[in-house]
Each structure stands twice: as C-alpha cells, then as structure tokens.
Amino acid sequence: MDLDVFVTAHHAEWDRLDQLLGRGRRLTGAEVDELVALYQRTATHLSLLQSTTPDPALIARLTQLVSRARSTVTGTRQASWHDAARFLTAGFPAAVYRSRRWWIPSALLSIALAAVIGWWIASHPEVQASIGASADLREMTRPGGQYETYYSSHPAASFAAQVWTNNAKAAAICLVLGAFLCVPVLWILFINMLNLGVGIGLMTSAGRLDTFLGLLLPHGLLELTAVFVAAGTGLRLGWTLIDPGPRTRRAAMAQEGRAALGMAIGLALVLFVSGLIEGFVTPSGLPTWARITIGIAAEAAFLLYVYIWGGRAVRAGEQGDVERADRSAELPTAA
C-alpha cells in the first residue's frame, strides 16, 4: 500500500471527524450520522494501517481519533449503586468460583506443606535449635508467651486495621505478581506456609498445639482462604500468559486482569472481616470453642456465598469481568 496516496485520499475525512468531535454536543442530527459514519471508516483505516504500515505517528493520531469518537458515540457511563450490587452479588463470587480449580489445590497443597514443616520441626530438636536459642523458644511458646500475647498486645481496633492492611497488601501482591509466570506467587505461598509451619512445630514441641490452633482458627480459616484465593487467581493469571486458550493472548490477559483487579477489591472486604475477628474475637475472653465456632461460621458463610451465588452467576454467563460497556474494544470496530 502506498502510504502517501492513502493519506491523501482519506485525510479530509479524518480532519472532518476531528472537527465534529471538537464541537461536542452542538451537533445536528445529520452531523451525528456523519460522525458515526466517519468513526466507522476511520476505525477501518486504523485497522488496515496497523496491519500493513509501520508508521507510529500516523497510527497514534488515528488511535486517539478513534478513541475520542468511540467515547462520543457510545457515551460514558457513571458508576452507580447498581454496579456495586452487581459486583457483590455476581461479579466477585463468580470470579472466585471460576478460579476454584486453582485456589482449592493451592490451599490443599499449602496446608499439607505447612503440616509437613510443622512435623519436621517438632520431631527434630536440632531444627528447633537452628531457629532460635532454647530460652527464646520457651519464651515464645510458654503460657502467656509471645504466641498468645501477640493478639492482645495492641488495642483491638488498631490491631484489626493493621492486620487488614497487611493481609490486603499480601493478597494484592499475589494477584499482581501472578502475571510474572506464577513464580513469585509460589514463593509468597511458601513463605506464608513456612511461617505457619514454624508456629505449628514449635507449639507442638511445647505440647501446646491446641492453644495455637485455638488462637489461629477463629480468624485464620477466612484469612488463609482469602490468601489462597488470591494466590490461585494469580497463578491462573500467570498461566493465561503461557496458555491463553482460544482467545488471543492480549484479550485473555485483559479479561483475566480485569477479573483479578475486581478480586483484589472483593478480597479486601473478606480480609476486613477476618481482621475484625482477629482484632476482637481471637484475643477475647470467649471460650475457645466459641471463638472457633465464630471462625467456622465466617468461613462457611464465605464458601456458601461463593458456591451458591457465584455458581449461579457463572451458570448465567457471568465471567467476573466488568460490564461489557466498560471494556475496551479489542480491535477497532468497522462497519
């Protein structure tokens, strides 16, 4: 294709489209029809140039022109309470449900790893000695030691806020780093399970595993589930980069990336609940059975929410993506 001839043949149409866009809402009915027709033709021109002509300046100009025209033709949509309700009742649970084949295996393998690490530490005094001096370990695991006072060492409200912030940050990191071929997510999971395994092993060796679980389970069930969901979603995102399936890699990453962004918001809400439990229930004077019951109830409520509402939404066609009107076009739309 002769670029100079092509530009000469069509630059008047591009200039006219730019002129109409500059007039904003002050267009007659005939001019609106003209704008739509020029938008469609310019989108076709852009698609043709992108596939045949390496002229970045011209492509950049037409890309901006088509983007402005698309916004004018399709209009802009303001977020509303309907969007928030749709996200909570369909989008978020559907995204978690769709990722279950990633986060459930991640959860099972991670818990198994933590159990193995805990058994290894509890069964080998030399490993315990490598972790810390015996006096320090006794201080950590004794009644009223660091493992127990950790949850009551700060005011409940500030502690809950701190825990929520840290956990939400960790979940977001898992979601974002998943795009780097899954490796960082696996490392984050390993570090979390290593810390959990150390606690299990040291408290088991001190004969106080029941106390440790009584402190962990009230908030840990929901908190760890949120971390596993974030990790599983990050792994899914990383695998999409490797194997996008029938979609183009760009389209697949865009869809899964938008779903992961929504997942970060939803998991922040889940972790807010677990932070409240960790700040107010875990260190409370309630009996151990009552605290664990609260944790199990919160975990069961989340799983029912995902499997009932999320499963229903997925069967209805929900993908956990944003509304179609809010998605960028994958390719310029031609007439």
Rank of each mutant, 00 (worst) to 15 (best):
residue 216 L to W: 14
residue 59 I to F: 03
residue 226 A to C: 13
residue 324 R to P: 12
residue 175 L to I: 03
residue 268 A to N: 08
residue 198 V to T: 10
residue 197 G to F: 01
residue 85 A to G: 05
residue 207 G to R: 03
residue 31 E to R: 03
residue 263 M to C: 10
residue 192 N to K: 05
residue 115 A to H: 00
residue 133 A to R: 14
residue 16 R to S: 12
residue 35 L to I: 03
residue 311 G to M: 07
residue 48 L to M: 11
residue 298 A to Q: 10
residue 235 L to E: 00
residue 95 A to V: 04
residue 297 A to P: 07
residue 71 S to F: 14
residue 131 I to M: 10
residue 231 A to C: 10
residue 109 L to S: 12
residue 264 A to F: 04
residue 310 G to R: 12
residue 310 G to T: 13
residue 42 T to D: 03
residue 78 Q to N: 15
residue 76 T to F: 12
residue 272 F to Q: 05
residue 223 E to S: 10
residue 134 S to T: 09
residue 53 T to L: 08
residue 200 I to T: 03
residue 217 L to V: 15
residue 148 E to S: 04
residue 228 F to K: 02
residue 145 G to T: 11
residue 111 I to F: 15
residue 3 L to T: 12
residue 133 A to P: 05
residue 74 T to C: 11
residue 39 Y to D: 02
residue 232 G to R: 05
residue 132 G to L: 14
residue 334 A to L: 05
residue 181 L to E: 01
residue 152 S to R: 13
residue 196 L to D: 04
residue 196 L to E: 03
residue 210 D to V: 08
residue 273 V to H: 08
residue 170 A to C: 06
residue 84 A to Q: 04
residue 173 I to Q: 02
residue 120 W to S: 15
residue 304 L to V: 15
residue 32 V to G: 07
residue 261 L to F: 10
residue 312 R to Q: 09
residue 100 R to N: 01
residue 142 R to Q: 15
residue 121 I to K: 04
residue 139 E to L: 13
residue 69 A to E: 06
residue 241 L to P: 00
residue 195 N to C: 01
residue 291 R to E: 10
residue 83 D to S: 04
residue 18 D to T: 11
residue 15 D to C: 08
residue 24 G to Y: 01
residue 32 V to L: 14
residue 295 G to D: 06
residue 24 G to T: 00
residue 309 W to R: 14
residue 123 S to I: 08
residue 300 A to H: 02
residue 235 L to K: 00
residue 255 Q to K: 05
residue 198 V to M: 09
residue 227 V to T: 10
residue 99 S to W: 00
residue 141 T to Y: 04
residue 158 S to D: 12
residue 327 R to C: 09
residue 178 G to I: 02
residue 287 P to C: 09
residue 224 L to S: 11
residue 71 S to Y: 15
residue 146 Q to R: 14
residue 46 L to D: 05
residue 236 R to D: 06
residue 20 L to T: 05
residue 321 D to S: 03
residue 286 L to D: 04
residue 74 T to G: 12
residue 148 E to A: 05
residue 257 G to R: 02
residue 17 L to Y: 03
residue 177 L to D: 01
residue 114 A to M: 11
residue 334 A to Y: 01
residue 332 P to W: 08
residue 39 Y to R: 01
residue 83 D to M: 01
residue 335 A to H: 09
residue 204 T to Q: 10
residue 48 L to Q: 11
residue 85 A to C: 01
residue 66 V to A: 12
residue 296 I to P: 11
residue 217 L to F: 15
residue 39 Y to H: 04
residue 286 L to K: 04
residue 213 L to C: 06
residue 160 A to F: 10
residue 54 P to W: 15
residue 123 S to R: 12
residue 298 A to R: 09
residue 12 A to T: 11
residue 146 Q to E: 13
residue 226 A to R: 04
residue 75 G to C: 14
residue 64 Q to I: 05
residue 334 A to I: 07
residue 136 D to L: 11
residue 327 R to A: 13
residue 153 S to F: 02
residue 132 G to Q: 14
residue 185 V to R: 00
residue 165 T to F: 14
residue 13 E to Q: 14
residue 30 A to D: 13
residue 38 L to Q: 05
residue 137 L to F: 07
residue 180 F to R: 01
residue 68 R to G: 10
residue 171 A to F: 02
residue 199 G to V: 10
residue 241 L to M: 07
residue 19 Q to E: 13
residue 109 L to I: 12
residue 115 A to S: 09
residue 170 A to V: 14
residue 58 L to R: 08
residue 304 L to R: 13
residue 206 A to S: 15
residue 251 A to Y: 00
residue 253 M to W: 06
residue 247 R to H: 04
